[in-house]
């Protein structure tokens, strides 16, 4: 019995130590003023509308990112970019970062082409999505999961 108990306890300790780094990251969430979860961020941008999944939005993110501190993201949207029909805004969101919003880009017809690219930080394996606002008020979304081997927010 004693031996059994010992192994049980060992198992618990291992589990706690495995979870601990995640918890310490979770503890940091409350410290940031800009913390916002993925769902509230989407609601804040769309104003309650549900974004449609569309093939018009092309999100280019690596499936496996070795370093979470530098993840290149490219968003391409098929649009004529005329004064009557253009892409109003591109939002890049990361589902598990303490602040889900990465960047909001407000475009105008003077851009000529609806494309944006940067490099973002990811805290761990999660989903990256591009939320696109069109000039007629519709919202489109494209999502892709990214595997991160080393987190970038530690």
């Amino acid at each position: 019995m004693q031996r059994r108990d010992f192994f049980k306890k060992l198992g618990v300790v291992a589990a706690v130590s495995a979870v601990a780094p995640v918890m310490s990251f979770a503890g940091d969430k409350s410290k940031s003023k800009n913390a916002m979860s993925y769902k509230t961020a989407i609601n804040a941008i769309t104003g309650g509308k549900t974004p449609k999944k569309s093939a018009k939005v092309k999100l280019k993110v690596p499936e496996i990112a070795e370093n979470g501190a530098v993840v290149p993201v490219t968003v391409n949207v098929e649009s004529p970019m005329t004064s009557s029909d253009y892409v109003k805004a591109i939002h890049i969101l990361a589902s598990k970062n303490f602040n889900a919003r990465c960047i909001d880009v407000h475009l105008t017809p003077a851009n000529g082409k609806a494309m944006f690219s940067t490099r973002i930080k990811l805290g761990g394996t999660q989903e990256v999505s591009a939320l696109v606002e069109l000039s007629n008020g519709d919202f489109l979304i494209a999502t892709q999961s990214v595997k991160v081997t080393i987190g970038g927010c530690g």
Binding site: I103, V105, A110, K113, I120, K121
Partner: peptide
């Protein structure tokens, strides 16, 4: 004349890069 306006949060990498297109006029 303003062509692109971005609101940025913490999640961008160090030494960030912003790439878009622009029509020459």
């Amino acid at each position: 004349k303003e062509i692109t306006n971005m609101t940025v949060w913490e999640a961008l990498s160090t030494n960030p890069v912003f790439t878009t297109y622009m029509k020459i006029n």
